[in-house]
Amino acid sequence: MIRLLTGNVLETGDVVWWTGSNWSLALRDAVDVGPDGDALLARTVAAERINDPALVDAEPTRDGPRPRTMRERVRGAGPTVRADLNRPNSIEATA
């Protein structure tokens, strides 16, 4: 089990994932924040540039991290009912 840091960009609302040095739109770029998670989260909250920041549990897979809850998988991939709008390089939420 790994932990990812995610949130939505203030200006656009886009879902982003912490890559270790920056924010990425692609779930597969997300890194395990490990024991740094809480400190990173606190820093993100204080900066007020990423909304609803949160730490989420995921499992590493060959295609990148797979969040444990359906909610986070949907956030990572896009609405399951609009495959045409799915984000690239993401694991399908229902997979």
Partner: peptide, 22 residues
Amino acid sequence: ITEDQFKPLRLMNGLYLQLHAY
């Protein structure tokens, strides 16, 4: 202003933050 202060202002104008975007 903080998100905590802004959120009710944007909500009064129908703008929510949902899973993928506003």
